[in-house]
Amino acid sequence: MKAVSADHISLSYGGKQVLHDLSLEISLEEFFIIIGPNGAGKSTLLKALTATEKIDSGSISLFGRPQSDYSRRELARLAALVPQGLDTNFPFRVADTVLMGRSPHLGLLGMEQEEDYRIARQAMQATETAELAHRTLDQLSGGERQRVIIARAICQQPSILFLDEPTASLDLAHQIRIMDLLENLRRERKITICMISHDINLAAMYADRLLLMKSGRVVAFGKPDQVLKEKLLEESYGCRLLIDENPVSGTRRVMPLPAKFTVDKGR
């Protein structure tokens, strides 16, 4: 059984086709990362997989069952989405925000039981947000807020976690903390991870497999070494790149080259 399998899916917004006949499979407990240039359709793909957007054709299955067979609530107990940023116009407290993750598990009137509080507390401990519990969302830094959104997603107790650029706009230490957190979640809680990243080097170090997208199509799909090839990446991103090996992790390392150096590149 696969965690996700998408078969020839297409999707268009207002006449413009964003996903073209795209297929992919994500295995159970895999760390799966989607990369690609801006406008490649990465976020749209994530919305399609989480049923936030309806696909025009093709089919999507989650854990061996067609996506359309699930109700919204069933889906929410299985798959959690960490979107880019959270609206903070209304100052909810961190603890209450995390507790919202219990929504798909509660009855009609939404009264939490002891068990729900326990799960929320655990989710905060796992994400190191317990000390922020009494603060409100508008008092947090970018990295703290990102961890709170992830805590809420964990509180949903999903089998798969979808994340849209969780490390964007974070400094180096916070980027690594978030990625290590996801790696831990996968190892300890057996949660499948599917995320979008703009940082190819982070992706290379953490991903089991990468999906490289451009213009709504799959360019390459496989282990990081198979995807992170100079020609493929240069064509997809439209710039010259330096690719070598990271001496510590042994994974590929990708650097964009400014125009003033590319004359010497010998091509």
Binding site: T50, A51, A79, L86, N89, F92, M100, L108, L109, G110
Partner: peptide, 23 residues
């Protein structure tokens, strides 16, 4: 009154609310 809880979730964003099981 019955929709009070989904109203909370809605306030943190439409996409996020949808993935939390709110139609």
């Amino acid at each position: 009154f019955v929709l009070a809880r989904p109203m909370n979730v809605l306030l943190t964003g439409r996409e996020a609310a949808s993935s939390l099981g709110v139609n």
